[in-house]
């Protein structure tokens, strides 16, 4: 065997070895119990026990059907593209466990045209805008002052607060809102009326980061377990 042939054979052997290691490595990542290694980050608070498939469901159709549908879409012969592999995680995925019949800030309500400015600013119509997964926290993407996007002209005729809502709004004290109000109203407690007794903004920030809920009272609608029908 000549020198160039030996080099060529060694190179082929290297490629084969590398390929086998890569395949074995990828295969090992598909074994049960390795989900956390594949996740892009730590599960958010409360989601630690969920399996990948609880949120990431397989998309409709076979891979071939999905690819064909998307080729047809690229050729202009089909109106919509389809998901390949796994279906996107949408509000429906979240609501499957977190359905709350009297949520005052249900995400779907923000699809109404008048919330266009809020949609541009914080995309409240989508659960993951504020609860992006795999960050190891509770709330993402918004500062605790986000109420300003919808409530800037807040005035109540019969305001129970020691400092009226309108005054807090005109002063720009938007970091005080969540000190009294639970955004999704899922804790059973009487709303505070003495502004000085509201939870401190830093407590709310800590809650966003995954700290304990500052709101007293029990959870009104505990999450249900994912349905795998």
């Amino acid at each position: 065997m000549s020198e160039p042939e030996r080099i060529q054979a060694g190179r082929k052997l290297g490629y084969a070895f590398g390929g086998i290691v890569a395949v074995l490595g990828c295969g090992a990542l598909l074994l049960p119990g390795t989900e956390s290694l594949r996740a892009p980050g730590a599960a958010n608070v409360g989601h630690e026990e969920l399996a990948c498939a609880d949120c990431h469901r397989e998309a409709a159709g076979t891979l071939r059907q999905q690819l064909q549908a998307n080729v047809q879409h690229l050729l202009g012969r089909r109106a919509a593209a389809v998901a390949v592999g796994f279906a996107p995680v949408t509000n429906s995925t979240c609501v499957a466990c977190h359905d709350r019949p009297d949520d005052p800030h249900a995400a779907h309500r923000f699809n109404e045209p008048r919330f266009e400015d809020a949609r541009r600013a914080i995309r409240p119509q989508s659960c993951v805008s504020c609860h992006a997964e795999h960050r190891g926290v509770r709330v993402t993407g918004v500062p605790p002052t986000f109420c300003v996007h919808c409530h800037s002209d807040l005035t109540l005729n019969d305001d129970p607060l020691t400092v009226p809502h309108s005054e807090l709004a005109s002063r720009g004290d938007w970091d005080t809102c969540l000190g009294c109000h639970d955004y999704h109203a899922n804790h059973a407690f009487e709303t505070e009326t003495v502004v000085g007794r509201a939870h401190r903004p830093e407590t709310i920030v800590e809650y966003f980061r995954g700290g304990p809920p500052p709101y007293p009272g029990s959870i009104i609608y505990p999450p249900t377990r994912p349905d795998h029908e």
């Binding site: 159709g61 059907q65 064909q68 089909r78 109106a79």
Partner: peptide, 16 residues
Amino acid sequence: IYLFVTAPPPLDEADS
């Protein structure tokens, strides 16, 4: 053949 021959039926599209 893989991409265009629709041996498996194409996925439904609601408004097609």
